[in-house]
Design a binder for these strands. Structure first.
Lengths: 145, 145
DNA sequence: CGGCTCCTGATACCCGGTCTCGACAAGTCG
DNA sequence: CGACTTGTCGAGACCGGGTATCAGGAGCCG
């Protein structure tokens, strides 16, 4: 089952980073793996309370910080300006977020380099990093509509 | 002087939207025009206090809402996840933000349509909107370094 | 097992942003 | 000009995401 795989992978990442495998971090990793689409820290806190895990709010934020640091989770900005988190793979990529169900898919840079190159030439800036976020409707939500 | 032009333009936008030209809105427009680079609502509030304008915090947020609505100002997300605002032109575009001085330039979509088209084909999503934010160093900051 | 550290939960706190409310002033109409 | 209507204002309470603090525990190593 995918969930187990994902959480063990997360724990392996902890090992690799020289961090302790603690019970709360394991639990947070499971809560995240059990979610679909983007979620907020408050969502996870609510899940934890519902399951009667004795996990504090601060711990959830700390675990999220760790996972963001290790690129197992990323912070995204919804069109309305709110923050959310999504589980994702650890290399450089972008997200396309479904406005219907909230699920997101990872997408690569594609030919973005050509675009940024053109912008560098036009503006004289040297681009260090970029962030591309896409919003739309996933195939499921479209067929359902 | 650029400041005067910008604020009068902003006031004209208010008229066009059927909103009242009030003293506080005028003042906020001036504060924004006097700023370079991105700024936060707290920055404007501090400016207002320093100049002894009797402008409340809530009013600054309300004025910013109006200007965002009218596309005279845009909300951006800094790489560290914080929110900021930048004055900008009212059509669709993106921002490239200098990590040195904070100034930003507007850039067009370039060939981004090709990139998003490829992503639609690869993922099956239909893309409604996108947000591209670029971070780097402006020509001034580079020559200065 | 002993002990050093890192980690945790509770709680207070901070800060950006919103809501509410009584007062006020912009534009309107007579 | 003056009364009215209603959008807007400032103050301050409030809210929610996120952080700092701190005493107590759990991991891990020897």
């Amino acid at each position: 089952m995918r969930l187990v795989h994902e959480t063990t992978a997360t724990l392996a990442i902890l090992d690799a980073a020289g961090l302790r495998r603690t019970e709360p971090r394991r639990a947070v990793a499971e809560l995240i793996a059990a979610r679909e689409g983007h979620f907020s820290a408050a969502d996870l806190a609510a899940d934890a309370r519902r399951r009667r895990l004795g996990i504090g709010r601060a711990t959830i934020f700390r675990a999220l910080d760790v996972l963001v640091e290790l690129h197992a989770v990323e912070r995204i900005d919804l069109p309305n300006g709110q923050h959310a988190y999504v589980a994702c793979r650890p290399d450089h990529h972008h997200h396309i977020v479904c406005s219907g169900c909230g699920r997101s898919a990872d997408v690569g840079d594609g030919d973005l380099a050509a675009v940024t190159g053109g912008i560098e030439r036009a503006t004289g800036f040297v681009i260090d990093t970029h962030r591309l976020e896409l919003y739309g409707r996933c195939p499921d939500c479209r067929t359902r509509a």
